[in-house]
Structure formats: structure tokens, C-alpha cells
Design a protein around this nucleic acid. Structure first.
Length: 564
RNA sequence: UGGGACGUCGCCAAGUGGUAAGGCACGGGGUUUUGAUCCCCGCAUCCGCAGGUUCGAAUCCUGCCGUCCCAGCCA
């Protein structure tokens, strides 16, 4: 340990690490790794693993490698490598010069396979894929030995060499471990170690190889080569641990890392499998891997989630082996907490309603001072131009309302944030009875002071119509209608539960002028509305596009729902 | 029904024989020129169920029940 207490609460994996350290079971230093397959973008579930692996390395003075598990060139490509690299770095982690690829080890992997053959622990099998499946047996029935299981070492060596040389077509032969076809653990029934794949260009090794090693064989050896001490993975690999150990026990491995499994993250109202996320992208349900509705790191970043908030979330949910279904409220709490502390406040009107302040001169402009953060003076101040014509939000006006409604009503008064108290004198409607404009009067003596003799209950935000800048604002809702869209119900799959209203685009919003200077990717709190992030892809210098990251906590809709 | 794992408050999660932490959510109150923030207070006589061991069990034993994962030449 590097001295201070770990900032992250202790979990069962950290406990194991600490115990190993105390017992002197670790030769050098703690070494972990994050091993993504470059076949899709990283999501919030990966963030949990990244925080765990890199976090342990940081807190116990160890190292964490970034290693691409690239043994299946059919599904992988270099774009994903780049996206994953960027996302891990953005989350705030660094691997120095320890960026590896499983494909870096292909030659060593091959040599270890030859060693296995020489020890009589692996053989070349000529069964077809279908036959292998039949021979494997079932969950309740033992499998039976392949007729090729007892080939001589010489013949296996010859055949395996010729597999590498490209003498056999795809699917004609595989290299298999020679373990136990009757094992109650199906993974131990002579699993495939190598398959033949001609004609694919591997993003790292090109056309150098026509045989590719399987995950179960590659992973333990890659870990051992890198001197990993704790190989942390998710629960579905628990059944594979005997195989992980078998591989290392049957070759001259440099060391034997310990595999530890934890349960993957399930977040309500979204899906977390790469296959499903890929389908959402490829079938056009979303606008891409970085669509702000996606639970991907790239999507969340674009939506306005900070790296700090994602890390905080990963700490809060903990690490265990039990199945879980985390509520969105947890994630929202983490973003709000971070953004509340760091996002400058601004004013923005989402649904504009014109207000004419009849007793304010038409040519007058006052520049009113507003703080950028009510609890953090160091964030400074800005000015807001105040004019005769302004916009307020339609939701902040009602012709009549109960006394619970603290905003503007006909004949009533309300405080304009950082400005004056105004009274609504007249409501102007169009032919359909729709309110199109309000005529108000302001109380000049109320700038920074409360009026005598009456209490102004409400404060609303506003933007000068002359100086305000137009913008598009995108409001997001959950991508799915059901908390667990993964679970099949009534013959429906997850795509049947997609929320058709997950995106609302508001095209006539008005922002306070200062926002024209914002940069793509910058986050703000639009007072009384929520946290918003300038989109990094859409919009121009003169047409701003903002994404709503999350709303502010809201006790009003609850109150409103209870009465009248 | 073979093997592996998991079941503590609506959700996440401590606890590993000495009499149920904490967070989120929720409810109540206070401060407030954001119905935000912040601050108080409340929120499992009970730990999947049933027996047993013990002075004493969520923690040990036995038996049930429930949930998840595994039959890719995917990872």
C-alpha cells in the first residue's frame, strides 16, 4: 500500500489483494489488467471493471495493463481499438508503456501449444464442428472421446505445424486440449485451443497467421507472460477457472496468476451486452455508439457525464458476486453531485413565452450581475442584459393556480432571478385562445432587495429577447420502457421495449448571451432546469446544440401531483 | 434434471458466533433571489424458508425453496 488508506471502500477482491500482500504471496508488486476485446465500444459495465482493475493498481502501488484480447479477427477492428483506448484514458487512467495485445503473444502461444502436444496434453482433431458438439455430450450426459484423441505426438506435431502452414482449409481441423470428456464441467471436455481462419486480415498481425488461439487458452498465458498477479473477470468465467488453471499447470508458465470473478453491472432501463448495443447501432435505433442515450462511455461523455461522476458511481455500487440491478437513480445522483459542485450556472429558456415589461424603456439596457455558482465564489460573476422584452418559460406561467404554485399567475408577482420583481397585468392570446404574450410591469426598487410589506414566493429564470441566443436543446429519457429489457416477457425481446420517446428535440430555445462563448463538451447548470452539455458533434458557432445530461432534483412535480 | 455460483430494507451493500454499518430512493422539518444545493430527523426485533448445535446464530450444521451461468471452431 502506498501509505494512505484506500479512498475506495474495501470489497472482497481488495481484501484478497491485501491478504496476499500481507501473507507475502506476491513476489513483486500487484499487477492487474483490463482486457477488452476490440469488437465494440466500452460501456458503463466496463467502467466498473476498469475502475476496479486500475483502482487496485493505484491504491496498492501496482500496475494495470491495457491488453486487447484480439484473438478473433472476424469480429474485431482497429476503430474499436482506438475508441477503447480513448475511453479508458478519458476515464482518467494511464497504462504508461504497458499497452499490449494478445496477438503480441501468438508466437509464444504457438510454442506453448507445441509443448502441450509434446506432453500428450493436446491433439489435432479432424471432427467437424457439428461432430464435436455431438461428442461433447450434454449437461447431464458425459461426452465421448474423439476418434483422433490418441494420435501420436509425432503425428500431432506434424499436423499442427501444417495447420499453421496453411495446408488445411477452415473448419477441417482444430487443436484440442486432452483433458476429460466425462468431466461434469463442460468446459473441461477437451476444449478447442486453436482454429483455422484463412483470408482474414488481423488488425495487428495482418495475414501472418491462419490459425488463431481461443480465449480460454490465450487468456491465462497472456496473464502469465505479463506477470499478472490477480486476473479479475466477470462471473460467467467462473466455470472456466479450472481450465485457466489447467493450461498454466500443463505448460512451463512463468507464473500462475489467480483468477477472481465478480458480478457484472446491470443498470435498469438499459441493456449492457455488446451484442445488443451493436444491434441498436447497426439497426438505427440510435444515432451511433456515442448517441447520448447509450450506456456507452462515449455516449455518456457526449451526454455530459463527467469521468469523475462515472468513477464515483462505480465506487458506490460496490463489487460483489451477487446478481444486481442498479437503479438509474444511483447514476443520476453521482452526476448531479459532481456537476452541482463544478458546473457554472446559466439561464436558458426551453419553452419561450414573450414578456413585455410595459413600464421599462424600450431603448434601455441594464447589465445585471449574477454569480456563476451560489456556493463557490471563486467561480466569479457574469452580467445579464435586462431589456423591456424578455422570455420566460411557458411552464412558469399559469392564468390561475393554487397557492402551491409559486411562479407567475395573472395579476400576481414573481421575482426574475438576479433582476426585478414583476407583476402580470395582461395576458395576450391568439385566435385559438393560446397565450402568446404577457404584459407585465416591474418594480424598480426590487433589484437586490425584497419589496416592503409583501412576500414574493417565487423566482423564475428569464432571457432578454434582444440579446438571447437561439439554440436547440435535446432532452433524453430512458432508452427502454422496462427496468429489465433483457429479460424476455410474453415472447417479446428487448427491442420490443424500446422507448419511442427517448429523445425530444426543442428547436426554439433561448440562451443567455454568455453561452455563445461555450465550447463543445462544456457542462452548465441551466438554473431550475438541469445540467446541460454543449454537444460535441452537432451545431455550429451560431446554432448551438445542448444535451440535457440530467434534470435537477424536482420536488414540485410531486407536490403538483398530490393536489388538485 | 450434471456442474458452478448467488440469496441481508424498494435498489446497491457492510457484517464471517456476541445480539443488523453506510449509500441511493422514500417520508417529515429547517435555511434559500435555483420548488436546486445544504442541514436535521425518520426508515429491517430482522437477515430466502424449515429444523438443529450453542448461554447466544445473518454468521456453524442439515434439509428444502428461489435466481443466475455453462453444451461457440465467441470473449
Amino acid at each position: 500500500m502506498s501509505g494512505d488508506q484506500p479512498v475506495v471502500p474495501i470489497n472482497f477482491i481488495r481484501k484478497i489483494v491485501e491478504d496476499d500482500l500481507k501473507a507475502g504471496r506476491i513476489e513483486g508488486r500487484i499487477a492487474t489488467r483490463f482486457p477488452p476485446e476490440p469488437n465494440g465500444y466500452l460501456h458503463i459495465g466496463h467502467a466498473k471493471s476498469i475502475c476496479l482493475n486500475f483502482g487496485i493498481a493505484e491504491d496498492y502501488d501496482g500496475t494495470c495493463n491495457l491488453r486487447f484480447d484480439d484473438t478473433n479477427p472476424h469480429k474485431e477492428n482497429i476503430e474499436y481499438v482506438q475508441a477503447i483506448t480513448e475511453d479508458v484514458r478519458w476515464l482518467g487512467y494511464d497504462w504508461d508503456d504497458r499497452l499490449f495485445y494478445a496477438s503480441d503473444y501468438f508466437e509464444q502461444l504457438y510454442a506453448f501449444a507445441v509443448e502441450l502436444i509434446n506432453r500428450g496434453k493436446a491433439y489435432v482433431c479432424d471432427l467437424t464442428a457439428e461432430e464435436i458438439r455431438e461428442y461433447r455430450g450434454t449437461l447431464t450426459m458425459a461426452g465421448k472421446d474423439s476418434p483422433y484423441r490418441n494420435r501420436s505426438i509425432t503425428q500431432n506435431l506434424d499436423l499442427f505445424g501444417r495447420m499453421r502452414n496453411g495446408e488445411f482449409p477452415d473448419g477441417s481441423r482444430v487443436l484440442r486440449a486432452r483433458i476429460d470428456m466425462a468431466s461434469p464441467n463442460i468446459n473441461m471436455r477437451d476444449p478447442t485451443l486453436y482454429r483455422i481462419r484463412h483470408g482474414v486480415i488481423h488488425h495487428q498481425t495482418g495475414e501472418e497467421w491462419c490459425i488463431y488461439p481461443m480465449y480460454d487458452y490465450t487468456h491465462p498465458i497472456s496473464d502469465a507472460i505479463e506477470g499478472i498477479t490477480h486476473s479479475i473477470c466477470t462471473l460467467e468465467f467462473e466455470d472456466h477457472r479450472p481450465l485457466y488453471d489447467w493450461v498454466l499447470d500443463n505448460i512451463s508458465a512463468p507464473c500462475h496468476p489467480q483468477q477472481i470473478e465478480f458480478s457484472r453491472l446491470n443498470l435498469q432501463y438499459t441493456v449492457m451486452s455488446k451484442r445488443k448495443l451493436t444491434e441498436l447501432v447497426n439497426e438505427g435505433y440510435v444515432e451511433g455508439w456515442d448517441d447520448p442515450r447509450m450506456p456507452t462511455i462515449a455516449g455518456m461523455r457526449r451526454r455530459g457525464y463527467s469521468a469523475a461522476s462515472i468513477r464515483d458511481f462505480c465506487e458506490r455500487i460496490g463489487v460483489t458476486k451477487s446478481e444486481n440491478s442498479v437503479e438509474m437513480g444511483m447514476l443520476e445522483y453521482s452526476v448531479r453531485e459532481d456537476l452541482n459542485g463544478h458546473a457554472p450556472r446559466r439561464m436558458a429558456v426551453l419553452h419561450p413565452l414573450r414578456v413585455i415589461i410595459t413600464n421599462y424603456p424600450d431603448d434601455k439596457v441594464e447589465y445585471l450581475e449574477a454569480v456563476n455558482h451560489p456556493q463557490d465564489e471563486s467561480m466569479g460573476v457574469r452580467t445579464l442584459p435586462f431589456t423591456r422584452e424578455i422570455y420566460i418559460d411557458r411552464d412558469d406561467f399559469r392564468e390561475e393556480a393554487s397557492s402551491k404554485f409559486k411562479r407567475l399567475v395573472s395579476g400576481g408577482e414573481v421575482r426574475l432571478r438576479y433582476a426585478y420583481v414583476i407583476r402580470c397585468d395582461e395576458v395576450v392570446k391568439d385566435a385559438h385562445g393560446e397565450v402568446i404574450e404577457l404584459h407585465c410591469s416591474y418594480a424598480p426598487a426590487t433589484l437586490g432587495v425584497n419589496p416592503e410589506g409583501r412576500k414574493i414566493k417565487g423566482v423564475i429564470h428569464w432571457v432578454s429577447s434582444r440579446f438571447g441566443v437561439p439554440a436547440e436543446i435535446r432532452l433524453y429519457d430512458r432508452l427502454f420502457n422496462h427496468p429489465t429489457p433483457d429479460a424476455a416477457r410474453d415472447g417479446k425481446n428487448y427491442k420490443d421495449q424500446i422507448n419511442p420517446d427517448s429523445l425530444h428535440t426543442l428547436t426554439h430555445c433561448i440562451l443567455e448571451p454568455r453561452l455563445a462563448e461555450s465550447k463543445p463538451g462544456e457542462s452548465f447548470q441551466f438554473e431550475r432546469e438541469g445540467y446541460f452539455c454543449r454537444d460535441s458533434k452537432l451545431g455550429t458557432e451560431s446554432y448551438l446544440v445542448f444535451n440535457r445530461t440530467v434534470t435537477l432534483r424536482d420536488s414540485w412535480t410531486k407536490i403538483e401531483g398530490q393536489h388538485d
